[in-house]
Amino acid sequence: MSLNTLTFSVKGDAGAALKAPVHHGVVGSGDMEVLMEPKAQDGAVSVSIVTPVAGFDDLWKRVLQTFVSQSGLSDAHLDINDNNATPAVVLLRLRQAMTEAQAN
């Protein structure tokens, strides 16, 4: 038993690039944290997720795709530490992080 690391990339198109790196969230039970950093890679958003849960790779991809298409984020790298967060919580935390990044 060890932690699972998922890495994949989502194609971003709209071009809302991050101005500065942002950190959001606390790894409580059923929660997660995310580091969002600007990274030039032809619009793509790369993601690295560390989670104790196995077998939800497709679901993670769908949630991240939803987030990227809704927020228009592009050219960024996301590092996520997850502790059994549900898809709704994941989407909420990512949106909050995005709001925080845009406020700065």
């Binding site: 038993m1 932690l3 790894v27 944290e33 560390v50 530490n81 997850d82 502790n83």
Partner: peptide, 21 residues
């Protein structure tokens, strides 16, 4: 030594427990 420095526990990782940055 904030989250972007990524000083997290190597022990939790081995045990399969969630880590924090």
């Amino acid at each position: 030594a904030g989250p972007f420095d990524r000083f997290y526990s190597p022990h939790l990782e081995t045990l399969g427990e969630a880590v924090e940055f």
